[in-house]
Design a protein around this nucleic acid. Structure first.
Lengths: 220, 220
DNA sequence: GTCTATATCTCGATAGAC
DNA sequence: GTCTATCGAGATATAGAC
């Protein structure tokens, strides 16, 4: 029997879970095999027994992290409701994904900005497998709403970048944001929970209504 | 005479310039002293002669990069014009800074997300020295415009995060964005220049007007 | 100040006993 | 499958001649 009695976590899994933590946090160059072994609670040699090399573990982790992250984002998108409701749900979904994987976007950006062909290939493969329904759904949603005359002419791709940027940026840049806030209001403790809740509201309001006051009766 | 005849670049400068390139691109762990020496066109030993250690070079670079980046962003903010004009100029300014330092935001985020006290200290010192006029100016600008009844109630800090996120995210995540776009329109070449130009428009429109069509006469 | 040579150390990987 | 011991590459850092 090759390990994995029902319900238990196989040793491979233990290693990969530990490896994901370390690699996502420190990147390939900053990762030590010893640290993976320590976090997995096993002997360092076993890393080489199960996977052949560090590079191998790295590739496995990149694939897994990219793939899971995209499908989680995908899952947050439902196009079968009105635009504002779908948008609100999507923002909520992104924030849940971010809260669960705060370091992943940064890791992805980092690896892709310096990574060679390997990482690029993994990305395109992942995107191909997931068929990337997200932009298509968003596209359809926006198109429908535009034809109904509810929203103006927007390039869906640009809108998606704005939306994702507004959501993701905070988590990636959190230390900077917090430092800036505290340099403005020194001494006042930063309430993370509240800021994030406010953030969701803000994104919805700015992206849906815009910040300009509407002059008509049913304005914001 | 301690080097630096007028107009020439001192050896320290040469080293730091080369070091900034490598470190911003590859991070501390990924940086090799040999590569810095090669790019500076000098012998490796001299790195240790001028700066004592790699760690030392790193700290110097972090300070310099943070400080310069913040003051460049600051410089893009002028509050002595109407809100839409100031906003448009600010977006333009950010994009110029990004085009000149495409990797810096990612580097900053990365270092701060894993960096210990050292990096945090450098950040707060830098913010303290620059007095962080940016948020204050933005705050004043928004307040003035709100009192004039032109824009709705917005938390300036949240708005700033949304604005910076919308601008910076694209540059940090460019490979992802491009990959997604090409998975949607396979075969069509991606026109970077045009996408960026469009991006500036989009950010201004979404953040100022919002995407919802205004029902009154002078609507978008 | 600058170079060559080398010491020292860290880390990925393997050999071999059990 | 798992562990101890160790090799060997490659990196930082230093010694010492010039």
């Amino acid at each position: 029997m090759e390990g994995s009695e029902r319900g238990e976590i196989s040793k491979e899994e233990q290693i990969l879970n530990a490896a994901a933590e370390v690699i996502v946090e420190k990147g390939l160059a900053g990762t030590r095999m010893q640290e993976i072994a320590d976090r997995a609670g096993i002997n360092k040699t076993l890393l080489h027994y199960y996977f052949r090399s560090k590079e191998n573990i790295y590739r496995t982790i990149v694939e897994r992290v990219f793939s899971r992250f995209f499908s989680q984002i995908e899952a947050a998108m439902t196009s079968d409701s009105s635009f504002p409701v779908a948008l609100k749900r999507f923002i909520d979904g992104i924030f849940s994904v971010m809260a669960a994987n705060p370091r992943v976007p940064l890791f992805m950006m980092q690896e892709l900005s310096q990574g060679g062909k390997t990482v690029q290939d993994i990305l395109t493969t992942t995107l191909g497998r997931n068929r990337m329904t997200l932009p298509q759904r968003l596209f359809a949603l926006i198109k429908r709403e535009q034809e109904a005359g509810h929203i103006g002419p927007v390039n869906p791709l640009q809108f998606m970048v704005t939306l994702l940027g507004s959501c993701i940026y905070y988590f990636a840049a959190e230390p900077v944001v917090v430092a800036v806030i505290q340099s403005i209001h020194p001494g006042i403790a930063f309430d993370r929970q509240q800021f994030i809740a406010e953030r969701k509201e803000e994104i919805f309001n700015v992206l849906y209504y815009g910040i300009k006051i509407r002059d008509d009766a049913n304005g914001r």
